[in-house]
Write a protein that binds this DNA or RNA. Structure first.
Length: 555
RNA sequence: GCCCCCGUAGCUCAGUGGAUAGAGCAGCUGCCUUCUAAGCAGUUGGCCGCACGUUCGAAUCGUGCCGGGGGCGCCA
């Protein structure tokens, strides 16, 4: 029996109790679903529900009395071993071993589909993340969004949503010109301009461009800026794309800011905003009245000198996403962009959308990094940067992705590079991966003994050990963890869950022998445990896949 | 000044209003002649920043303080 099945069974019990008059609760006070949770302590049974506590007021009776009415009826359900009323009115439910053990069969049968759901089926979601300027390598901040954004997309897909991963290329504006200028100066053997970029990558890029196009150096300075800027753009974007592929983060859409202008999207966007009546002219500039929607000041779309602002691009970009038919547009932005939240929401509102539905801005706190006990400062201008590529070289894709996904994004993150470099079990990713490798090895050994994972002869009632019960209980939580992570856009819940599951497995492994020893005959218990192992391996693999981390067969 | 985030064990951090607040690391102590010891078991460690409020029940929700970080542009 899965937790979901138990929950709906309890709802039926509730309805029956009300229908028969045992409980007097108005129909509109009945819950839509019954919450089931795993008690922390084993003495509180396999599952617990607080439904009696919540209903006590509507029923006009003490919680324990409500609980006791329900307990009698729950006791009569198939697969229930015991029901206790505890504390202020909790119902603690213990399942029969066979009912609980059947979960292993369900998981092995469903395979990769176990944990996937349909709660967001039919919802079209755009997840935009990283969105860097193509004028330098992706740094550690971008790396956090790469790992988290991609995992959010994976978790949403697992919940049934139709997801597009999108990277907005900030390829317009003065930063690009500074980039071109810095490349030109480097190509000519001159130091970078005061407000330009200084990193070693500039020298390398400039050299690569000159190698391909020595004739660029013969052009006038103004033209050199343009050709170096454009050639650098192409090379740098390609480098970003390659490193993201290495990081297992694939985008469905690379959306160029320039293309908003070339395609007429900006024009169309300005027309839409004017039609909705929220733009106006003042002092020769065109403004959007975002203060109508919680922004603290109106924003300029077109400056008095005729230039469009970055905000105009943002508006046009949102309106273009809208035309493309997304129900929810998720933006992952750094903490230094929190001032953008209200104006992005105001864009949606000005366009006639409900920002509470169509726009979600996830503000992530910055990543700090320590090496040798000293904070590593990041500054792209100075070239003193730790790139995504550096991090992957040092700790590997798995450890990097897992570590970055393990924390909620609104927590500032401190990474100790020395610790990550060690690749010991200081890093929980190894603990989880080790569990998967351990099971894989065990299943290989089983195959050599001629034992297969056999669902036909599987006797769930043999899984009676306390550690087996704990493991089954943990396995049952997975679907709820996935939908919760999707709804809350918090993939770290998957990582934390996997650590719990791995722990439950290691404990089981320590006290329950799976394979027959020596000359021992293979018993039905051995077979049943083998199915339990296979189920655990499946859930570990499914969970790691949601984080973009590999599930190794051997370590 | 206004806005956002954070404050939980020595350190890094989990904890979607539930029962005795958890994990890893660090410290101490045990467990490998048979399935991976990257493991398991035990032990040490807490005014959940402070106060008041809402609730049957608050680390969690509200208000006010205190402390730390970040942000305010006809910049991009």
């Amino acid at each position: 029996m899965t937790p979901a099945e138990l929950s709906s069974a309890l709802l039926s019990v509730l309805d029956a109790a009300v229908a028969s008059g045992d409980l007097d609760v108005p129909a509109d006070r009945l819950p839509a679903s019954v919450t089931i949770e795993r008690p922390r302590s084993a003495e509180h049974g396999d599952y617990a529900t607080n439904v009696a506590l919540q209903l006590a007021k509507s029923a006009g009776r003490p919680p324990r009395e409500v609980a006791s009415v329900l307990a009698t009826r729950i006791q009569a359900l198939p697969g229930i071993a015991a029901v206790d009323v505890a504390g202020p009115g909790f119902l603690n439910i213990t399942l029969e071993a066979a009912a609980q053990g059947e979960l292993a069969r369900t998981i092995v049968g469903e395979g990769e589909a176990y944990g996937r759901g349909a709660t967001m089926s039919g919802v079209r979601v755009n997840v935009e993340f990283i969105s860097a300027n193509p004028n330098g390598p992706l740094h550690l901040g971008h790396t956090r969004w790469a790992a988290v954004g991609d995992s959010i997309a994976r978790v949403l897909e697992a919940a049934g949503a139709d997801v597009a991963r999108e990277f907005y290329i900030n390829d317009r504006g003065v930063q690009m010109d500074r980039f071109g200028e810095s490349l030109r100066e480097a190509a000519n053997g001159r130091p970078a301009p005061e407000d330009g970029y200084h990193g070693g990558y500039i020298t390398d890029l400039a050299a690569a461009i000159v190698a391909d196009h020595p004739e660029y150096l013969d052009l006038p300075a103004g033209e050199q800026l343009v050709v170096f800027r454009e050639a650098g753009y192409v090379l740098q974007l390609k480098q970003q794309q390659d490193v993201l592929t290495l990081f297992r983060t694939e985008f469905d859409v690379w959306y160029s800011e320039r293309s908003l202008y070339e395609s007429g999207a900006v024009e169309r966007g300005l027309v839409t905003l004017r039609e909705q009546g929220h733009s106006y002219e003042l002092d020769g500039a065109l403004w959007l009245r975002t203060t109508d929607f919680d922004d603290d000041k109106d924003r300029v779309l077109i400056k008095s000198d005729g230039e469009t602002t970055y905000f105009a691009s943002d508006s046009a970009y949102y309106l273009d996403k809208r035309v493309r038919g997304f129900d929810i547009n998720i933006y992952l932005l750094g903490a230094d962009h929190h001032g953008y939240v209200n104006r992005l929401r105001a864009i949606a509102a000005c366009a006639g959308d409900d920002p509470n539905v169509s726009i979600e801005v996830l503000i992530g706190q910055l990543v700090k990094m320590y090496r040798g006990g000293q904070e590593v400062r990041l500054s792209k201008r100075k070239g003193d940067i730790v790139t995504l590529e550096d991090l992957v070289d040092e700790v590997g894709v798995d450890a990097a992705r897992y570590t970055l996904c393990r924390y909620p994004v609104d927590t500032p993150l401190s990474l100790d590079l020395d610790l990550l470099v060690k690749q010991t079990n200081d890093n929980p990713v190894y603990y989880v991966q080790y569990a998967h490798a351990r099971i894989s090895s065990l299943l290989r050994n089983a195959a050599e003994l001629g034992l297969d994972v056999n669902l036909e002869d599987f006797d769930a009632g043999l899984l009676v050990h306390a550690r087996e019960g704990d493991l089954l209980g943990s396995l049952g939580q997975f679907p709820r963890v996935v939908t919760g992570a999707a709804e809350l856009r918090e993939p770290h819940r998957v990582a934390r869950y996997l650590e719990e599951l791995a722990s439950a497995y290691h404990k089981f492994y320590d006290s329950c022998r799976v394979l027959p020893r020596g000359d021992e005959e293979a018993s039905p218990t051995h077979s049943a445990r083998l199915v339990l192992c296979a189920a655990t391996r499946q859930v570990l693999a499914n969970g790691l896949a949601l984080l973009g981390v590999t599930a190794p067969e051997r370590m």
